[in-house]
C-alpha cells in the first residue's frame, strides 16, 4: 500500500473510480482535516460536521469517475461537494448560519490549507484583501459563498433591497479578483 500515498489526487480518484480501497484510504487520509474543517466552519457542530464530512467522502467515492479535471482541481471539487452538503444540512435543520464575521475572521487567520492552485503570495494577498473589504460586502460574500444564500435571501436577512445585496456581492468579489490580478481585460 506504500506506493499509494505518493500518488497524485487525480490518480487516487482514478483508483477510487475503479473501487480500489487503498486509493480511497489514502484519499480520505489526505483530505479528512480539510473536509472536516470546512464542514465544521459551516455547520458549527463537530458531530454534525462529521456526518457531513463522511457523506462528502462517500459522494466522492461514488462519483469519482465523473470528476473532470478541466472543470477544476481535486481539492476544489471535493470542497464544493462538502460545502453543498453542509448547506443542505443547515437548511434541513432549519438552522441559521454561524456569524459570517466569525467565518471571515477564520479565513484570514493564516491557518488555512495549502492544497490550492494559488501560490503563497496570492494566498496572502487574498487574505489581506478579505480584511480590507467593507464589512457589508464581506458579510454578503460569506453568506453567499459559504452558506449558499441567494441574493433574495441575503436581502431579506440584511433588510436591504435585492439590488443592493447583489451589488455588495458583485463589488466584493470584483475587489478580490483585482487583488489576484485575474481581471478579464
Amino acid at each position: 500500500m506504500h506506493g499509494v500515498w505518493a500518488l497524485s489526487d487525480e490518480s487516487l480518484l482514478a483508483g477510487m473510480a475503479s473501487r480500489d480501497a487503498d486509493a480511497a484510504t489514502a484519499f480520505v487520509r489526505r483530505y479528512q482535516a480539510r473536509v472536516f474543517g470546512l464542514a465544521l466552519t459551516i455547520v458549527g457542530s463537530r458531530s454534525v460536521a462529521e456526518d457531513v464530512a463522511q457523506e462528502a467522502f462517500v459522494r466522492a467515492w461514488r462519483h469519482a469517475e465523473s470528476y473532470d479535471p478541466r472543470k477544476g482541481r481535486v481539492p476544489a471539487w471535493l470542497l464544493t461537494i462538502t460545502r453543498n452538503l453542509a448547506i443542505d444540512t443547515l437548511r434541513m435543520r432549519g438552522e441559521l448560519p454561524t456569524d459570517p464575521f466569525l467565518l471571515m475572521g477564520s479565513l484570514v487567520s493564516q491557518e488555512g490549507g495549502t492544497d490550492s492552485s494559488m501560490d503563497y503570495d496570492d494566498r496572502e494577498n487574498l487574505r489581506r484583501a478579505l480584511l480590507t473589504l467593507p464589512p457589508e460586502q464581506a458579510r454578503a460574500i460569506a453568506l453567499s459563498v459559504f452558506y449558499g444564500l441567494t441574493g433574495k435571501e441575503i436581502a431579506a436577512i440584511e433588510e436591504i433591497p435585492l439590488g443592493t445585496a447583489k451589488t455588495r456581492i458583485r463589488r466584493g468579489l470584483g475587489k478580490l479578483r483585482e487583488v489576484l490580478g485575474v481581471r478579464d481585460e
Binding site: A33, R34, F36, G37, L38, T41, P75, A76, L79, T80, R83, S106, L107, V108, S109, E111, G112, G113, D115, S116, S117, M118, R123, L126, R127, L130, I141, V145, F146, L176, L180
Partner: peptide
C-alpha cells in the same frame, strides 16, 4: 480558492 482558505 476561498473554500481552500478555511482552516483545517
Amino acid at each position: 480558492e476561498m473554500l481552500t482558505l478555511v482552516p483545517v
